[in-house]
């Protein structure tokens, strides 16, 4: 009897651990199938151009102000930090190069990705989850319209195509923010700053930034759609779906950023 008592907590712990591992694998499997299904629907007709246009506006155009402001302040703050840090070993002159490298390779895409998770993922998840709990998704099916084609494919395609553009804007504005702070507060020469920036950046820096943008765009929109489509019932279900989608998108964007950075620059 005492052996059983001693063994039970261990078995209980192992059972819980096993359930958690199996649950994780099941979740990864569901997400993988959802992703494959999304890409299949993106590539096969019918295509809903009106929905795609709306998604382009929501994901791309309407995100421009938040991306621009975030990049501007981040670029400015980065210039101040590098100047202050560089002063410790008399390397203040590297501000243009490090700002360009930091913004284009890392901060630009990551900040845009996280802004997408905050603005786009949450809105997509809340919208689709609300459609689910109010039976609008069922209504779509009864009206002979596949929800993956009508709701998911246009949004993910818009994320894939517009976020690289947003990253390009974010990179440019971020570098501009650094330049502005450098010439106004740090007494840099404008022409020299810009020349150093342009000379230092290489094509792989820009390409990696845009590729990251495309990957983050897919992750941000896909997470919104996935959690929205799999939302629970009621207001609590919508809230939970929205929260989970933003957390998952943010974590996956940072993980993808690490993997892509390693793929582009580790060698």
């Amino acid at each position: 009897m005492s052996t059983t008592r001693a063994a039970n907590p261990i078995l209980h712990l192992l059972a819980r651990l096993g359930a958690a591992v199996l649950g994780t694998f099941a979740a990864v499997g569901r997400l993988t199938l959802f992703t494959l299904s999304t890409f299949r629907h993106m590539l096969t007709p019918p295509f809903y151009s009106r929905e795609f246009f709306h998604a382009l506006m929501n994901v791309g155009y309407l995100s421009l102000p938040v991306v621009g402001l975030t990049a501007l302040f981040t670029g400015g703050a980065l210039a101040l930090q590098i100047y202050a840090g560089g002063a410790r070993f008399s390397a203040e002159q590297v501000v243009p190069q490090i700002v360009a490298l930091g913004v284009v390779r890392e901060l630009g895409p990551v900040m845009v990705g996280l802004m997408m998770a905050a603005r786009v993922t949450s809105s997509i998840a809340a919208e689709i989850a609300t459609m689910k709990v109010t039976e609008q998704i069922d209504a779509l099916v009864t009206l002979s319209t596949h929800p993956m084609k009508y709701l998911t494919a246009p949004r993910v395609l818009a994320g894939l195509l517009t976020v690289p553009f947003l990253v390009a804007v974010g990179d440019t504005v971020g570098v501009f923010g650094g330049w502005f702070v450098a010439i106004k507060s740090l007494d840099f020469n404008s022409a020299t700053y810009l020349k150093n920036t342009i000379d230092f950046l290489e094509m792989p820096d820009i390409v990696s930034s845009l590729v990251k943008g495309a990957a983050f765009g897919v992750i941000a929109t896909l997470m919104g759609c996935y959690f929205g489509m799999n939302s629970g019932r009621g207001a609590q279900g919508v809230g939970q779906a929205t929260k989970s989608s933003v957390v998952a998108a943010a974590v996956l964007i940072l993980a993808a950023n690490f993997l892509l950075t390693q793929a582009f620059f580790a060698a």
Binding site: H54, M131, T134, E135, Q136, D138, A139, V141, T142, L143, S144
Partner: peptide, 16 residues
Amino acid sequence: LARFGMLFQGAALFDS
């Protein structure tokens, strides 16, 4: 599905 029409409990109209 083209043979069916359905009125949902909450109408399920598309808000957008």
